Simulated assay, not measured.
Amino acid sequence: MEAPTMTTPDTQEEIEQTLGQVPSWMEHIAAPADDHSWGLFRDLSLGETELSPREKALIGVGVAAAISCPYCTHFHREEARLADVSEAELEEAVSLASTTRYFSATLHGNEMDMDEFTAETAEIVDHLKEQEAAAAGDD
């Protein structure tokens, strides 16, 4: 027995034309958000935006890894492969995500002062800019 779809017939047709099918998981989106959810996915993930498909896929892989979602990890890894992302790049994206999650836990768990953190970050950015300018002057 097929589960009833929650999206409107027009949205179902658009999803099927775009993806070749209406994925079963989309049938579990609550009615008030069903068509809107497809629009978000379509426009941000598949649409032409400021980010390239490669960048979107790498972000997706990193976020999926950081939130430990096997569904999102699988989807975004496949998306990344479609965008010609190498296995080494996938591994790096996951490593970057894990580093961010690690330091986030450290900062939150130790209740670091946000104002101090912001000021230190500004100093670090200034220092890095100075190093870049000096390196460019060496060329």
Rank of each mutant, 00 (worst) to 15 (best):
F75R: 09
F41N: 06
L90E: 06
P32M: 10
L44H: 08
A64C: 08
A122C: 01
L44P: 07
K56L: 11
A88W: 03
D139G: 08
Q17H: 13
A65Q: 09
Q131T: 08
P32R: 15
A133H: 04
N110A: 08
A88M: 04
M112H: 11
A97R: 03
G39L: 14
L96N: 09
E27W: 02
E123D: 14
A88Q: 14
T11G: 03
M1V: 07
E16Q: 08
A88L: 05
A3L: 15
M6G: 00
F103E: 01
A119E: 15
A80K: 13
L82G: 12
S37V: 14
P9Q: 09
T8Y: 00
T106R: 12
L90C: 07
A136P: 02
L19G: 03
L128R: 13
Q131L: 13
T99M: 08
G62W: 00
D113E: 09
T99R: 08
Y102P: 01
G20H: 02
E55A: 13
L90W: 07
W25R: 07
Q17N: 15
E27V: 03
A30G: 07
E120G: 03
A3W: 11
P4A: 04
A133Q: 10
I124A: 13
T49S: 07
W38R: 04
Q12N: 11
S45E: 06
A83G: 05
E130W: 00
L90N: 08
G39V: 04
T73M: 08
I67S: 00
A105C: 07
A80G: 10
T118W: 07
E87D: 06
K129E: 12
M114N: 14
G137D: 14
T7Y: 06
L44D: 06
F41E: 04
S24M: 07
H108V: 11
T18Y: 00
I124G: 02
E48W: 07
H127E: 15
Q21L: 15
A122Q: 13
E13R: 15
R81V: 06
A93V: 04
W38P: 00
Q131D: 10
G39K: 12
V61S: 02
E130Y: 00
A80Y: 06
F117C: 09
I59R: 05
I29L: 01
W25Q: 09
H108T: 13
P9W: 03
T11R: 07
F41D: 02
R81M: 11
D138K: 14
G60D: 02
G20N: 06
